[in-house]
Design a protein around this nucleic acid. Sequence first.
RNA 1: GCGGGUGUAGCUCAAUGGUAGAGCAAUAGCCUUCCAAGCUAAAGACGAGGGUUCGAUUCCCUUCACCCGCUCCA
Length: 548
Amino acid sequence: MDKPNDQSRMDKIVSLAKRRGFIFQSSEIYGGLNGFWDYGPLGVALKRNLKECWWRDMVAGHDELATPAGAPAPYEMTGLDCTIIMHPQAWKCSGHFDLFHDWMIDCRESKRRYRFDHLHGRWAGYRGKRVFVVTDQSGDEALPHTVTRAQKFFGVRANKIEEIEWPTALQPLAAAVKAGTVALGETLGPDAGEPGTLTEPREFNLMFETRIGALAGNDDDRAFLRPETAQGIFVNFKNVVDTSRVRVPFGIAQIGKSFRNEITPRNFTFRSREFEQMEIEFFCRPADSAAWYRYWRDRRWKWYLDLGLTAGRLQLREHAADELSHYSVGTADIEYAFPFLAPGEFGELEGIAHRGDFDLRSHMEGKLVRRDGALVVETGADGKPRHKGSGKDLSYFDDVSRERYVPHVIEPSAGADRAVLAFLCDAYHEDEVPDEDGKPRSRTVLRLHPRLAPVKAAILPLVKKDGMPEMAIDLYRQLKPHMACQYDEKGSVGRRYARQDEAGTPWCVTIDGQTLADRTVTLRDRDSLVQERLPFDAVVGLLRDRLT
RNA sequence: GCGGGUGUAGCUCAAUGGUAGAGCAAUAGCCUUCCAAGCUAAAGACGAGGGUUCGAUUCCCUUCACCCGCUCCA
């Protein structure tokens, strides 16, 4: 694989994030905890601003009377905040329980890991020796693979292959082990040279498990921390429709924590085990769903650009047909070229998925699978549903078209922590600023969009005397009710500018000698370094205007 | 989870089997009239736990975290 884009740049960003109090490792004083991260004073402000932007732009500020550019029709938006722990059946019907719950088996020799239920094998014998040959191949390739493996293990020439005896048929390894017809010590792993290198199967659960009740102890009390916020919206679909007067098409938005036991948390906060999602489930008429899918894909793409992400580092990627989830008829990812990735590689910020009626139907009928192109309830060996649905009718009667249907769903699902990381990486710049002697001096600056910046403005007396601090404090108190701002009188003004640049503060207002004479101040722009002179009393109004 | 590498102050780096030193940053004070100036003061570290040793930051083991690769990954 190629070298990461710019690992040293990433290192500097991580270092800045820690040094200035954006992001700390969780439980650091105890040595840290893999895959968990805390937001410090500046970080929490940045993240809150980001979430607030999302909520304002998608939900609170949405005009349901107008048809937004690119939208097929006017629509409504509303919100929800549901619990992290839900009825366990929700995760069985959503598919997460089966999908996220695997038995894995490791090979001590090849260091490879296999899904236990993907392994098959059969007994092979040759001149008195016998071994249970295991393959990870499936379909037509499985049987020839076991022959090749056995041939190599026994050291049989190609023309003597017929001498290898195969007393049993190919069968799932799990079944053979359970039946006691083979012990793991007798198995030859798919990539091993010697038998007995496969470990006992171990349970791999990507969902965090917990127990309900203080005295909990048995399996019936088992519950899960949600691996996505979406299911809480689906199970509340009927509640919202019945109580809020919304009519299709409409969206329900939610921001909240989700949890996944990632096997390999990596790349700073990019893959965390506890993370925050910003999700919309948008419900529409099946016939209109493709148009709504395109609308949301383009709308969400534009949102990142409007908040300042560099277009050249952002990518909108439509999934190929074979890449789609079992339920999806269309998915696009919005991806960012993070510095820790190899050139040409992108990391997912948000997925916009056309989920059809999979989710609502699953919570009605039970867990669905795709069979011959149609979604049907998955059944167990006994012919009954593998996971039973709620049995509640989640269909919708459309008063306008006079038809009843299960709405289709478009799901723009964004990672709040990933977005924060992308905006942080994108904002990070090193440039040169002339020092007091006019010589260039390097500076670190976060070019965050003013809406995202943790601190919007710093109020600085040029020097700490002659009444300047008093005037600056006066202005600070006028501004504070309107936006996050800081007062700083310590050290030289250049140092204070530099400190604010590093935190991403877009504006610095400086009170100088002239302020005392004519009641004007200077307003310094973070990116251009341009200073403009304006009346003291115009500052609050001007900065408020620039923020919107 | 496996293999390899790395852990000394907020950051960047030293030294050492005998109680760890510097620069920058940060804090307090002085000074300072527009982009990290200067002076003074005080503060701050051997990732954690065991073991060997009279004595361990240094040697050994374990563990935790980070980086690279594998595996995995809506």
